[in-house]
């Protein structure tokens, strides 16, 4: 089964459902490692910086978004690490996945940004188009 799994998450309900699917897959293989990535969106940078007192606080805020995801993974005894990327969500995830040769990429069908896309999230759409590994989209 898959060993190197990339989970793109933003703390939304969809990404939590994606986490449960990742747990199902990863628990089939004891050696599998899950990397959880959160993309700090460029277009949010200004308001992120304005609304946090220091860069340490900002890091903490971003990390806190992933807490529910991390809790699920920890409870299921899955090996995982967390990575925070800066950029435009779709391309950043694709670039990261392709460069590090992940075997499977799991992503929620829609993120927190509900304004942008109504049916399939634009991020997951872009990721499916450009990622070089199998992509699993969780509804």
């Amino acid at each position: 089964m898959y060993k190197k799994i990339l989970l793109a998450a933003d703390g939304s309900d969809h990404s939590i459902r994606a986490t449960s699917e990742v747990i199902k897959i990863a628990s089939m293989n004891e050696t599998s490692i899950v990397t959880v990535v959160l993309v700090a969106d460029y277009s949010q940078a200004k308001s992120d910086v304005l609304h946090s007192g220091s860069s340490v606080e900002l890091d903490m805020k971003r990390r806190r978004k992933l807490m529910p995801v991390e809790e699920l993974l920890r409870a299921a005894n899955i090996n995982y690490r967390v990575e925070i990327l800066h950029g435009v969500p779709g391309p950043s995830i694709v670039e990261f996945a392709n460069k590090q040769n992940y075997e499977l990429l799991v992503i929620g069908s829609r993120g927190l940004n509900s304004l942008q896309e109504m049916v399939l999230g634009s991020v997951s759409h872009k990721v499916v188009k450009r990622a070089e590994c199998p992509v699993m989209i969780v509804k």
Binding site: A40, Y42, A45, K46, D48, V49, L50, S55, L58, H86
Partner: peptide, 12 residues
């Protein structure tokens, strides 16, 4: 300085 902090954050 506000802009510098934003660029710091964006570029890590």
């Amino acid at each position: 300085l506000l802009t510098a902090t934003i660029v710091d954050d964006m570029t890590g």
